[in-house]
């Protein structure tokens, strides 16, 4: 029973070789992340802020007994802050290099099927005010530009640590 079904499925992937992405929006920009790295998507969870942390570190959430850090993707990518934020945020929980981390986005779209060959390397120019180092690739989808984010770069732990120590040393001086 299942066999022909599976077969057709495989054929289609073979011929098209598409990639499944979870799409999400920050502001008007559309981004995508490989569905395989997405653990789950949650809404409406209280985030406990961590005092004295880099501002993009939104805080921590309680994910069924585990404490997961949450990063505000907008702040992390230094995207433009809109006048008023929708308080109802989405959190995409990703597993990036073994670390489970939540990323705050404005809203999440449905799962997107993108042909593998339509994904292009990041252009040299800045896209949507985004440094190209955070971009894995881009592709055109329904007349829109979909940006595939490089989350391993976004969650570069060393950088976060450095940011923290920089911030720390700055604080007393400013007082």
């Amino acid at each position: 029973m299942n066999e022909p079904f599976a077969q057709t499925n495989r054929e289609s992937t073979e011929t098209i070789a598409s990639k499944q992405l979870v799409g999400f929006f920050i502001g008007e920009e559309m981004f995508g992340v490989d569905i395989l790295t997405v653990q789950e998507i949650i809404r409406d969870t209280p985030i406990t802020p961590i005092p004295d942390a880099p501002d993009f570190l939104e805080g921590v959430i309680n994910l069924r007994g585990s404490i997961i850090p949450v990063i505000d993707l907008r702040k992390r990518l230094k995207l433009v802050q809109p006048a008023h934020l929708d308080p109802d945020v989405w959190i995409i929980i990703l597993t990036v290099e073994g670390r489970v981390t939540g990323f705050v986005v404005d809203r999440v779209t449905k799962v997107l099927n993108v042909p593998e060959n339509s994904i292009k390397p990041p252009p040299d120019i800045v896209v949507a005010g985004l440094k190209s180092q955070y971009i894995q690739g881009v592709c055109k989808l329904d007349q829109r530009l979909l940006i595939l984010l490089e989350f391993s770069r976004i969650l570069m732990v060393d950088e976060i640590k450095k940011l923290k120590s920089m911030k720390r040393s700055k604080v007393p001086a400013s007082i």
Binding site: T48, I50, G65, I67, P69, R99, K161, K164, R168
Partner: peptide, 23 residues
């Protein structure tokens, strides 16, 4: 435990989950 980059030099040694599920 908190993620190492959260915990390091943060002044916190970890977190706990309270009765109402908050941290």
């Amino acid at each position: 435990p908190l993620e190492d980059y959260l915990q390091e030099n943060s002044g916190f040694s970890g977190a706990t989950i309270l009765g109402d599920g908050s941290i």
